[in-house]
Amino acid sequence: MKKLIMTFFLIIVFVAFSLQAFAITADEILDEMEARSALNATQKSVGTMIMTDEKGKEEKRDLVMYSYDDSEDTENRAFIFRFLSPAEVKNVTMLSMKDGDQIYLFMPAFKKVRRIAGSGKKEKFAGTNFSFEDLSGGYSKDDYDATLMNDDDDENYILDLVPNDPDSDYSKLIMTVDKEKFYFKKIEFIDLDGNQWKVLEVQKVQEEEDGSITILKMYFQDLKDNSTSLVEMESVEKGIDLPSNFFSVRTIQRPEI
């Protein structure tokens, strides 16, 4: 009988250690999210942004985005974000390179490019409620100290992400990740005082045959100034041919890209 009890005990211990060994980590979740988004390295997206201020006034802007994402080397990640209309913001363009370490803003009215660095990343981009920090890069394990807060939910992982950047506006991000498709459903941005400041929610995605995920619609709220932005992509082209020097300061100064 004692032998049977001991055998049963050893089986329980083995199963417990096995489950711990195979449990996914926060860094592995972020890696998988990057892998799912980088299966098609180059991408062009055309869409709209509808901004609503605290008084309920709406403004619609047309936009185009080009991106390059290489899961083998996040330092090569880059994207260009340009407004196409209305006239007062036409061709205002942001360039992010080296996973958000280098950010440039082109203002056509001044015909000059400005480097955005340090505390400048806290500024809002072209009158939107997105800061340059919000737009500058992805969510890699190199940029955040990630902790898995909860995986008991059948559908989602909950991650706690503490920025490595000492100049960040946020003490942490709370990210809800889809367990099956590995994309973020929601991100809560927590300010330096520990209060919820902004919320980004993904409302529509498209799953490709290769398993990659394309975000088509998202809703961004700034809870402090009571403003919102609804971003929706109307067309997405993947695997497009782009020149090797496309993501450059020279490119964003062109009237057409």
Rank of each mutant, 00 (worst) to 15 (best):
S85D: 13
D134P: 05
D154Y: 09
D165K: 13
K141T: 06
M94P: 02
F79K: 00
D145E: 15
G127E: 10
D99P: 01
F81H: 02
E133T: 08
K90P: 02
D101L: 13
G100P: 03
I116F: 05
F110P: 00
K98F: 04
I116N: 06
K111H: 08
F79E: 00
K90D: 12
S171F: 01
S140E: 01
S131K: 07
K141G: 11
I116Q: 04
V113G: 03
D101I: 03
A146Y: 07
D99Q: 13
F125R: 02
D142G: 14
A146R: 07
S119H: 04
I80S: 01
I80R: 00
Y144W: 14
K98V: 07
V89Q: 02
A78M: 03
V113A: 03
I80E: 00
T128W: 08
G120E: 14
D153K: 09
E123P: 00
N91V: 05
F106E: 00
K111F: 06
K98S: 13
D153Y: 12
D152F: 10
D70R: 01
F106G: 01
K172I: 03
Y144D: 06
D160E: 15
D167H: 13
V89S: 01
K121E: 11
L159V: 08
L173V: 05
D99W: 00
D152C: 01
K141C: 06
D169S: 15
S96Q: 03
K122F: 03
D160L: 12
Y144R: 13
G120F: 09
P166D: 10
E72F: 05
Y139T: 11
R82H: 02
N150C: 11
M107Q: 11
M149A: 14
F125C: 04
D153N: 15
D154R: 14
L95F: 07
M149L: 15
N156S: 13
S171D: 13
K121I: 05
R115H: 12
P163K: 08
E133W: 10
L173G: 01
G127Y: 10
S140L: 02
Y68V: 10
L135W: 07
T147S: 14
D134V: 06
T128H: 06
S136G: 10
G100I: 00
Y104A: 05
T147H: 13
P166H: 10
L135S: 08
K172Y: 11
E133S: 11
Y68I: 09
D101A: 13
V92G: 00
I158N: 05
S140V: 02
Y170M: 08
A117V: 14
R115N: 10
R115S: 13
S67I: 02
A78Y: 01
Y144E: 06
A109Y: 04
A117Q: 14
G118V: 05
P108R: 07
S85K: 13
L161M: 15
T147D: 12
E155N: 14
T74K: 10
T93G: 04
D69A: 12
D169A: 15
S71F: 13
A126F: 09
D145H: 14
M149H: 04
M94D: 02
A117H: 09
P108T: 03
V113P: 00
S168R: 09
N76L: 15
P108G: 02
S136D: 13
T128G: 04
D167G: 12
N76A: 14
S140P: 04
E88F: 04
Q102F: 11
D73V: 06
I80T: 01
F132T: 08
L135Q: 07
E75H: 10
D134T: 10
R115M: 06
S140D: 05
G120D: 15
